[in-house]
C-alpha cells in the first residue's frame, strides 16, 4: 500500500479500513462465545475451531471453486466442534476451561494435518462490496471495500441483542446461564440448552475462520490465526456479554491490529513487532481495568466458571 500521496491521512484511513477488515473474525467468534457464555459455559476451544474452520473453508473452496460451499463447510465443522465441547462438558468433574485448551490444540493439529495439501493452491475469495467507488483515491477505495461477512456480522449482533431481550429462546439461554436450578425448576434441561448454545457458538467461530482464509489475509497457512479466538473470549467479558458491545469491541481490536501495518505503510518501521503486539496489550489492559477482586462483573451469567 502506498499512502505517500495523501500523507499522514493515510494512517487513520488505513486504521479504519483495517478495523473493518481485521474485526470481522472477532465479531463472529465473540458473538458465538457470547451465546455460549450466556448459557453458562466457556469455550476456550474457539481458537482451534477458528483454525479448523479456516482450513475447511479453504479446502472446500479450492475443491468446489466457489467460496460459499467453503463457508458452509466451515460453519458445519465449527458446529461439530461446538457440539463435542457441549457434550463432553455435561459429565461431572469435566472442566470446561481445560477441555477448551485441549480442543484448541486438537483443532489446530487436525487443521494442520488435513490442511497440508492446501497450502499451495489458490481458493476463490469471498466477495466484497466497493463502498468507496465514488472516490478516485485508491486508499479510500481500499479502506471502504467492505466484505459481505462484515455486514452480516453487524446485522447479526443487532439481531442477537434484540433476541436475548425479546425472544423465548433468548430468555431460555439467559435463565440456564444464570441458574441451573431455576432452569430445572422451569422444566428446562440445562445440558441440552448449553449443548445447542456451544454448538451455535462453534458454528459462528467456524464462519470467522472462513473469513480469515477466504478474504483477509485470504490464504491458508499454519499461522493464520494468532490468538484471535482467545482474544475474542476476553473481548466478550469486556463487552459484558452484550452482542452490541461485542461488535464495538471487535472494531476496537481490529483497529489495534491494523495499527502496525498502517504505520508501516507511511514508513514507520521502528518497533514494528511491538505494534504487532498492540491488540494483545490492549486486551490485557482492558481486562486489568475492568476486573475487580471485590465485586463480581455486572451482567455476568451466574453459572459461568470464569467469573465465579
Amino acid at each position: 500500500m502506498d499512502a505517500t500521496d495523501i500523507g499522514l491521512w493515510g494512517v487513520p484511513l488505513a486504521i479504519l479500513g483495517g478495523a473493518i477488515r481485521v474485526s470481522t473474525p472477532f465479531i463472529f467468534v465473540s458473538l458465538g462465545e457470547a451465546i455460549t457464555e450466556r448459557s453458562g459455559r466457556i469455550n476456550l476451544g474457539l481458537e482451534g475451531t477458528l483454525v479448523f474452520g479456516a482450513m475447511t473453508a479453504y479446502a472446500v473452496a479450492v475443491m468446489t471453486n466457489s467460496p460459499w460451499p467453503g463457508l458452509l463447510a466451515a460453519a458445519a465443522a465449527g458446529l461439530c466442534f461446538g457440539l463435542f465441547h457441549g457434550w463432553i462438558c455435561k459429565f461431572s468433574k469435566v472442566n470446561d476451561i481445560a477441555i477448551g485448551i485441549a480442543l484448541m490444540l486438537f483443532g489446530s493439529g487436525l487443521a494442520f494435518f488435513f490442511g497440508k495439501p492446501f497450502i499451495k493452491p489458490k481458493a476463490p475469495n469471498l466477495p466484497a462490496i466497493p463502498f468507496g467507488a465514488w472516490s478516485d483515491i485508491p486508499q479510500v477505495q481500499a479502506a471502504l471495500d467492505v466484505n459481505v461477512l462484515f455486514l452480516i456480522g453487524a446485522a447479526l449482533s443487532l439481531v442477537l441483542w434484540w433476541a436475548f431481550r425479546n425472544t423465548r429462546a433468548g430468555l431460555i439461554v439467559r435463565v440456564v446461564g444464570d441458574s441451573s436450578d431455576a432452569a430445572r425448576a422451569m422444566g428446562l434441561n440445562p445440558n441440552r440448552v448449553r449443548l445447542l448454545a456451544t454448538g451455535v457458538g462453534g458454528a459462528l467461530a467456524g464462519i470467522g475462520g472462513a473469513y480469515l482464509s477466504l478474504y483477509y489475509p485470504g490464504s491458508w497457512t499454519e499461522r493464520i490465526s494468532s490468538g484471535q479466538g482467545l482474544m475474542a473470549v476476553a473481548l466478550v467479558i469486556f463487552a459484558r456479554w452484550n452482542p452490541l458491545g461485542c461488535f464495538a469491541a471487535a472494531l476496537l481490536f481490529g483497529g489495534a491490529g491494523a495499527l502496525g501495518p498502517a504505520l508501516q505503510s507511511v514508513g514507520v518501521t521502528q518497533g514494528y513487532y511491538l505494534f504487532y503486539a498492540a491488540p494483545y496489550i490492549l486486551t490485557l489492559v482492558i481486562m486489568i481495568a475492568t476486573s475487580s477482586p471485590t465485586r463480581s462483573l455486572a451482567g455476568a451469567p451466574g453459572e459461568l466458571s470464569i467469573t465465579k
Binding site: 485448551i101 494468532s226 490468538g227 476476553a234 467479558i237 513487532y273 503486539a277 494483545y280 476486573s291 475487580s292
Partner: peptide, 30 residues
C-alpha cells in the same frame, strides 16, 4: 499477582502475555 489482586483471569492473561513475550523477543532479536 493480576489474578489475586485484580481478579484477572489467569488462563487468558497468561496466553495474551505469551503473545506479547514473543513480540518482545522478535523486537529485541531484530
Amino acid at each position: 499477582a493480576l489474578r489475586h489482586y485484580r481478579a484477572v483471569n489467569e488462563t487468558i492473561s497468561s496466553l495474551l502475555m505469551a503473545y506479547i513475550a514473543i513480540a518482545l523477543m522478535n523486537q529485541l532479536v531484530e
